[in-house]
């Protein structure tokens, strides 16, 4: 038996309880969002011969072209530059796709939100899982690069697992915050799109921190850099710095607590905003 009660007089206690129930019910429907996420990825490449493998191929072509040119521009050995570039693109792409899609999430699901009883967090879980599927497709490029290029074999690679987990938790939390704000204020999606474009260029993805000795401080205050490092360094056989771990962990904690309070507070307004 399910009982629902809504009253216009609300306390933080009721906000947090309903917010928690929303997140929990969303998680319980994991089979449904896993199915839908896969379905959405397949649908995008329907009737194409390569299907979702196009995701992989698009990125592979870009990495090959940029790797070959830019290794000369930056005077780097292609043996170290190309693996660095590959991991950077894949990992940063995961984060920036989620941030950009979170900004359009509730608006694009408006019809569904007004029709069905699915908890609102369901759409966030689905978005994150779809991006994990895309990440997995892109990850095959890393495997090929790992086989072709001399990446040092080391147990450090296992550190990528906790690193990726922190990144997923933070992305999920960020989506819970960005989604409602962007549903209310429709100028937010383009603002976010242009910010993410700036971050793509100011985050060391196709250049390294060594290229910008005088501006290294701007790299270190960039949160995306630290999340990138805790996944990229292990995949390249190195250990991330303590600073990377500390900043990424603290940010994850702050983001998830903020997201829980924020989402709980504004959850019931989202239906009115979309």
């Amino acid at each position: 038996m399910t009982a629902i009660e809504h009253s216009s007089s609300k306390t933080w206690h009721t906000f947090l309880t309903t917010g928690w129930h929303d997140l929990r019910d969303g998680a319980r429907r994991h089979q449904a969002w896993i199915f839908l996420a896969g379905h959405e990825v397949r649908r995008q490449y329907q009737r194409s011969i390569l299907g979702p493998f196009w995701i992989t191929l698009n990125l592979a072509i870009m990495i090959a072209a940029i790797g070959w040119f830019y290794s000369e521009i930056f005077g780097q050995e292609i043996d170290t530059y190309l693996p660095f570039l590959t991991v950077g693109f894949i990992v940063f792409g995961f984060m920036s796709n989620i941030v950009n899609e979170a900004a359009n999430l509730f608006a694009s699901e408006a019809v569904a939100i007004r029709q069905s009883l699915l908890p609102l967090s369901f759409y966030v879980y689905k978005l994150i899982f779809r991006q994990i599927i895309i990440f997995a497709h892109n990850f095959t490029i890393y495997i090929v690069v790992w086989l072709l290029f001399p990446i040092p074999a080391s147990f450090n690679i296992l550190l990528a697992i906790p690193g990726f987990c922190l990144m997923v938790i933070s992305s999920f939390s960020a989506a819970l915050i960005i989604g409602p704000i962007a549903a209310r204020f429709r100028d937010i999606p383009p603002i976010i799109a242009s910010l993410m474009q700036v971050f793509f260029f100011v985050t060391p993805i196709f250049w390294t921190i060594g290229n910008v000795p005088k501006r290294a401080v701007f790299v270190n205050i960039n949160p995306f850099f630290h999340y990138l490092e805790i996944v990229r360094q292990p995949l390249l056989g190195h250990a991330p710095s303590n600073l990377n771990w500390i900043i990424a962990s603290v940010l994850t904690a702050i983001l998830s607590v903020t997201a829980f309070f924020f989402f709980s507070r504004y959850r019931s307004k989202i239906t009115y905003w979309v």
Binding site: T2, H6, S8, Q115, L117, T271
Partner: peptide, 24 residues
């Protein structure tokens, strides 16, 4: 339970099925 009212109270118990748009 899709729109939460701005004023007043609502209480429902039981499994709810909304059938609004058949093909949605």
């Amino acid at each position: 339970g899709i729109y939460e009212p701005n004023e007043g109270r609502i209480r429902t118990s039981g499994r709810i099925a909304p059938i609004f748009d058949l093909g949605f």
